[in-house]
C-alpha cells in the first residue's frame, strides 16, 4: 500500500521565507500555519469559510486558509498577517491606518480584515465606501466595529493616492 500515513512533503514560501515540511493530507492551511509554523496571527473562527478570520494571501490572492489544504500550497507564496509589516517592524500604511482609526477592538477579525484589505486595495487603490464594505462583507467582526475599519481602509487608500501624487 502506497503512503499509508497519507502524508506529503511540501516546500513553499511563507512571508518570504522558504519552508519545508511533511504534512498530513487532511491538514488545512490554517492549521498548518498555526500549529506547524507557530504563526498564530492567522485566526481560525468558523472553519467553514464564513467568518473570514483565517484569510491569508496565496500568490497574492486573498483566500480562506481553512478551505485550502496545506498540501495545495506546495510551491506557492503564502503571506499571513505577520508578513504585512516591513522587516524592521514598520507597519504597512493599512496597519498604520487601523491603529490611527481604532479599527480593532478585540482583534480577532483583524488578521483577516488586514489580509483581505491589503489584496483588495492593491487591486482597487481608490475604492468607494461601498466597495470597501463589499470587500469586507465576507469578514465578520463580532465587536461590530465596522465603521472604523471602513474609515481606516479609505484613509489608507487616500494616503497611498496622496503618496503617488507627490
Amino acid at each position: 500500500m502506497e503512503n499509508p500515513r497519507h502524508t506529503h512533503r511540501i516546500a513553499l514560501t511563507v512571508n518570504g521565507a522558504p519552508v519545508e515540511a511533511e504534512v498530513e493530507d487532511r491538514l488545512h492551511l490554517g492549521d498548518f500555519l498555526r500549529r506547524e509554523l507557530s504563526l498564530t496571527g492567522t485566526h481560525l473562527g468558523c472553519e467553514h469559510g464564513v467568518c473570514g478570520a483565517c484569510t491569508v494571501m496565496v500568490d497574492g490572492q486573498a483566500v480562506r486558509s481553512c478551505l485550502m489544504l496545506a498540501v495545495q500550497a506546495r510551491g506557492r507564496a503564502v503571506t499571513t498577517v505577520e508578513g504585512l509589516a516591513a522587516d524592521d517592524g514598520t507597519l504597512s500604511p493599512l496597519q498604520e491606518a487601523f491603529r490611527e482609526h481604532h479599527a480593532l477592538q478585540c482583534g480577532f477579525c483583524t488578521p483577516g480584515m488586514l489580509t483581505s484589505l491589503t489584496a483588495f486595495l492593491r487591486d482597487n487603490p481608490a475604492p468607494t465606501d461601498r466597495e470597501v464594505r463589499e470587500a469586507i462583507s465576507g469578514n465578520i467582526c463580532r465587536c461590530t466595529g465596522y465603521q472604523p475599519i471602513v474609515a481606516a481602509a479609505l484613509a489608507a487608500a487616500g494616503a497611498k493616492a496622496a503618496e503617488e501624487e507627490n
Partner: peptide, 10 residues
C-alpha cells in the same frame, strides 16, 4: 484537524 483521514491525489 477536522477532516477524517483521506489519501490526497493530484
Amino acid at each position: 484537524m477536522k477532516p477524517a483521514p483521506f489519501a490526497y491525489h493530484d
